[in-house]
Design a protein around this nucleic acid. Structure first.
Lengths: 156, 156
DNA sequence: CAGAATGGTGCAATTTTATTGCAACGGCGC
DNA sequence: GCGCCGTTGCAATAAAATTGCACCATTCTG
């Protein structure tokens, strides 16, 4: 799995740069890491084919694209079997407002991250996910007051 | 803030496509949304300048880049004032293993998302963040067993 | 140790893409 | 109707990506 061993300092530098800004041209990146454009390009292409770089995506400004309200919900299931867990997660991940869904250890069984347009969407979501027939014993809602850090990049 | 009103169907289509794969060429995108390359390019440039597109980044495969272990930690502070909250968050966000940090409502005050190389890193992190002098009353660790969904894209 | 094999590099030629000027088109208010 | 504004497509230009090639360093092998 880990391909860190096959990577040198320049690969790591490239990955760090591209995690910050992947819109830079190959020529630009090559200049910064001190390689020729062709050589730099071969590295980035190799990093993509090997899967170290999963994909290149556009990150939107949530405030300018709607869905401003964020919340975390810790869910405790009634039935704790593997199949019950999977069933609940399958339902949860189909919801557009659910951006993250994790099975976790501890007091609760599942943690969901929500991105909501408004509280009405929260209300209707709760009705769909946390009703009697969905195997939910209890759930604890944590509205996110402030986002101090939200970092998808992996430091290398 | 919300600039959704000024966007038409093609803008939304472009944003959805670019959130999935921003490595596609402008020519390719133009073809898919049914515009000429020049016109399509002007749209994507406008979306970037207006800030709807915050940035273009490379997403790495965590398993192939280290930091395989993920955990959520709910933290309850001793002192709940605004300045105490800020002080704790300021310390937390400087930690590389802390990928997300939120101030939240509910039983606890702060939720952290951790990305760890190994449990030793978790141990040392706890010593730095959750000691007496860091204003932490209690903390609840939830190791992430399974990631059912992890979506940064915003559906439009 | 010599020679081959492997992998990475820079250069230069070629192909592809991005960028820009320009005229035309459509909606809208006056 | 007429002009205004923003958007479009086309074509020319500039920039970037891609590829073939020869060269160099390291490692493997006999």
């Amino acid at each position: 799995m880990g391909m860190l061993g096959k990577m040198d300092r320049i690969d790591r530098k490239l990955l760090n740069l591209m995690q910050r800004d992947a819109s830079r041209t190959n020529v630009d990146l090559a200049d910064e890491v001190g390689l020729s454009p062709s050589s730099c390009l071969r590295r980035t292409q190799r990093l993509q084919k090997s899967g170290v770089i999963d994909r290149i995506v556009a990150i939107l400004n949530p405030a300018k694209a709607g869905r401003v309200i964020k919340a975390l919900v810790a869910v405790e299931l009634k039935l704790h079997g593997e199949q019950h867990m999977r069933r609940f997660l399958d339902i949860a991940i189909t919801e557009e407002a659910v951006s993250h869904a994790y099975a976790v250890t501890g007091e609760t069984d599942v943690v969901l991250m929500l991105r909501l347009r408004d509280m009405e969407e929260f209300d209707s979501l709760c009705e769909r996910l946390f009703r009697d027939q969905t195997n939910v014993a209890r759930f604890f809602t944590m509205m996110i007051i402030r986002t101090a850090k939200e970092e998808t990049a992996i430091r290398l």
